[in-house]
Every structure is written in structure tokens, then in C-alpha cells.
């Protein structure tokens, strides 16, 4: 199985999006969800940095399901809606259950193509210890594989111990790497069977544009 976007052929179900802070990871993954949902995919966005409302504001004209791990953590107890489920970032079981609820909804409505974004694993690692996060991701990545969904997990480069990043790479079978040389941004995709060259990209408004 393969998913195509921004000129990439991604052949892994679970992909790490790794890059330094401010290198464009969130914008990149939002573009992936936006593009795929427009094509008819079911889209799930797990956000640990911005509230659901902030995420949806950037994707107003598409139907995306959001697991909001921010609102409850900052003590704002806004209610759930049809497309937004809120949960505390400390409640990994709650996050897992809510992602599954959206997957079940897609499955029962006959939708089999699903893309999920988890933005970002680094925030979860700030609150919880790595072992706990690995166990959670072990369950989540298996679920994505079993469903046949494609999932993208953003990780801030330089924020974590090298061992932590190496262990995350064990769980996630492909990596989109981002880098910023001060003037331009680049990305490339690597998996056990693919290794592409660095490709330059720009961000225009909310859009990722390949140069």
C-alpha cells in the first residue's frame, strides 16, 4: 500500500516527521491531511499543541476529525462536538479510545482510506516518560497498520535524547526529514525500501509549495 502527496510515494503506514523546531512540520502535516481529505480520505488530527478550534481554522472547508489534547490540559473544559473530542494529554488511554472511536465511525460508514496526524509526539514526551509513550505508540501504530490507515507523527529534532529518537524510529517504519539551512527549507522521505533526495520547499500562507 502506498499514499501519494506533495510528489512523495510513502510506502509505510506509520511515518515520523522529524525536523528542528520551526522547520514547517505542522504545516506539512496539515497539508497532507487537507490534500487527502479533499481526495475523499477520512482525516483525523490529534493535536497536542493547538486547540481543535485553532487547527480547524486552518482547514475550514474540509471535514476533519480532531482529538484535542490541549483544551482539557489547560483547564478549559469545552464540550465535545461531532468532529471534536477533547482529552487531557496525560490520559493516553483516553487519546487511544477517541482515535479508535473516529476509526470505528469511518469503518462503519464504509470508508477505508484514512489518514491520521499526531502533532506532536514531542509534547507528549514533555509530560510523560519515554517508556510510557513507546507503549502507547506501540498500540497506536499497530492499530493504524491493522486498519490500513496512514499516520504521521511529528517529532522535534534536538529536543530528545538520541536513544529516544532511535526507539521511535523502531516503531515508525518511515521518516520524512525536514531541514532549514537559514535560506531554504528541504525535506526527504526515507523508508527501508526507499530513500529520496532532499527536495526544496516553501511555505506560502498555509500551503507547502515544492520548488
Amino acid at each position: 500500500m502506498m499514499i501519494k502527496f506533495l510528489g512523495l510515494d510513502v510506502d509505510a503506514n506509520n511515518v515520523m516527521v522529524l525536523g528542528p523546531p520551526l522547520s514547517g512540520k505542522s504545516i506539512l502535516v496539515r497539508n497532507i491531511v487537507y490534500e487527502k481529505v479533499l481526495e475523499g480520505f477520512g482525516g483525523i488530527y490529534v493535536t497536542t499543541k493547538d486547540t481543535a478550534e485553532d487547527v480547524l481554522r486552518t482547514m475550514e472547508d474540509v471535514d476533519v476529525k480532531v482529538v484535542d489534547c490541549v483544551s482539557k490540559t489547560i483547564f478549559s473544559d469545552a464540550p465535545d462536538t461531532e468532529n471534536i473530542k477533547r482529552v487531557s494529554i496525560m490520559d493516553l488511554t483516553g487519546i487511544s479510545v477517541r482515535i479508535n472511536a473516529f476509526l470505528e465511525e469511518f469503518w462503519k460508514s464504509g470508508r477505508r482510506d484514512v489518514v491520521m496526524v499526531f502533532d506532536s509526539v514531542s509534547t507528549v514526551l514533555m509530560y510523560l516518560n519515554p517508556q510510557m509513550v513507546f507503549r502507547f505508540l506501540h498500540v497506536l501504530t499497530n492499530r493504524m497498520k491493522s486498519f490500513g490507515a496512514f499516520a504521521f507523527y511529528t517529532v522535534d529534532e534536538g529536543m530528545h535524547d538520541e536513544k529516544v529518537v532511535a526507539m521511535l524510529k523502531q516503531l515508525l517504519s518511515g521518516v520524512i526529514e525536514l531541514r532549514d539551512d537559514g535560506n531554504s527549507r528541504f525535506f526527504r522521505y526515507i523508508s527501508p525500501s526507499k530513500r529520496m533526495e532532499w527536495r526544496r520547499f516553501d511555505i506560502e500562507g498555509r500551503e507547502v509549495v515544492i520548488s
Binding site: K72, F75, D77, V87, S88, M90, D91, T93, G94
Partner: peptide, 11 residues
């Protein structure tokens, strides 16, 4: 409670 605030638990 160890995963959510007391207010969230009550809700």
C-alpha cells in the same frame, strides 16, 4: 485522579 483535572473528572 492522575490523568485529568478535578473539574474534568466531575464533568
Amino acid at each position: 485522579t492522575s490523568t485529568m483535572s478535578p473539574e474534568s473528572i466531575r464533568n
